[in-house]
Amino acid sequence: MDGLSLLLERHSCGRLVAPAPQGAALETILQAALAAPDHGGLHPWHFILCEGDGRERLGALLAAAAEGRGEGPEAVDKLRQAPLRAPLVAVVVSRAIDHPKVPVLEQQLSAGCAAMAMQMAAQAQGFGGIWRSGWVMFDPGVHQALGLADGEQIVGFVYLGTPETPVVGPRRRLDSAKFVRYL
């Protein structure tokens, strides 16, 4: 698949099964993430990979956060099971660095670009992915359990694996005129 087709046919795949990207395929995904736009060469991101039992540990800490918020048993269980929906979950973390020319927002956007690059690199290799978010990204207990430092922020959970069913049909195109204006 050429690059332009990959961008135009980008899609999220919520039903993922084994195998997950491994070896050279996973390294390609990580290298794509590390090639994200990075003003100043700050490398303002890092990734926590959760596979195997790591997905269960991630689920347990998400469930603990839900319990801490007073969520009901269904919501707690849903978060406990969430990382098991894919064989590999990458927690994408922005690592903001105090810099006179590169504001924190720009560094967080760079981490977001890294997350998208992961998903695109997975799709280019025949895998699937979905970028998930939610209130747990901002929960101090989740940050502490993952060992995040002050100034670090989760920008998403990128679920990766093999699509359970093939994607069929072309992606719906939006009318660009509805989103563009000229100055």
Rank of each mutant, 00 (worst) to 15 (best):
H99K: 12
A75D: 08
V93T: 00
Y159K: 00
V17E: 10
L30H: 03
K78F: 14
T28A: 15
D139S: 08
G134A: 02
P87A: 10
E27T: 13
L160W: 06
D139K: 02
R10W: 06
L79Q: 11
G40E: 01
A111E: 05
A20N: 04
L62H: 07
A25E: 05
L7Y: 13
T162Q: 10
I97E: 07
A75K: 15
Q123H: 06
P170F: 13
A35L: 15
M118F: 06
R69S: 03
R171Q: 12
D53Q: 15
E152I: 01
R69T: 00
L6E: 15
L174K: 11
V167N: 07
C113Q: 13
L4R: 14
I48E: 05
G156L: 00
G134K: 02
E71S: 15
S133T: 15
L160G: 07
M118G: 11
S12C: 14
L42Q: 02
D98T: 13
V17L: 09
L42C: 00
H143I: 01
G68K: 03
T165W: 11
E9Y: 07
F157N: 07
A145V: 04
R80D: 03
P44F: 01
A75N: 07
A111V: 12
G41N: 00
G72F: 10
W135A: 07
L183C: 14
V104M: 08
R10Y: 09
W131T: 10
D139N: 13
H39W: 04
Y182F: 09
W135Q: 06
G52D: 07
G72C: 10
L84N: 04
V136K: 02
A64F: 09
L58H: 00
A90D: 02
P170D: 12
C13T: 14
G54A: 08
W135C: 02
Q81V: 01
I29G: 11
S12P: 06
